[in-house]
Amino acid sequence: MSTVEQKIEFERHVKQNMKKAYFSALGILRDHDLAMEASQSAFVKAYKSFGTFDKTKNFFTWYYKILRNNCLNIIRDNKKLVHEDSNNYLEYTFEENDLNQNIENREIYELTKKEISNLETTDREVLILREFEGYSYEEISEMMQIPIGTVMSKIYYARKKIAKRIGAYLK
């Protein structure tokens, strides 16, 4: 494959996967600018080793490993810059017809946002990949290189922590 063809193919992969890449990084890093930087620099690294990519495999699964390492390095190097309480990367929507219900809902979602942000990085990553991004257990297992049972268990315990936090509203 010529350099031009390779560039065209890579561009196609980027355009198909840039949103998924950005949102995956956002779930891990909880910061828009860092997520943008991480997803782009992971694409640069992916381009450099694009020649070694097995075209029969899924591009995003291959790319995700690079992205994940990038994000974990950013967290390691920028612990003070990634604020522990930053949770404006999450949004919620609900019907606004009942005022009392509305206040209660707001409380539930704010507590849930806080609890998601307080989860361990890998627990939050798994939860977001499954519940927000809609990946199957099998896909997550492949992307994160952990057994499916571990994926299920991490999601379950993450939800359990949230349930504990918003428990009073769930009954």
Binding site: E11, F23, M36, L90, E91, I108, F132, I162, A163
Partner: peptide
Amino acid sequence: DQKRVKEVLSKMKLSNPQKEVWDGYWMGL
């Protein structure tokens, strides 16, 4: 409990950046 948490999570999403970000994404890269 798990079902209710799933319901809460189903109404949440990761917030989108501005549309222009996507227009310039490939060029920046």
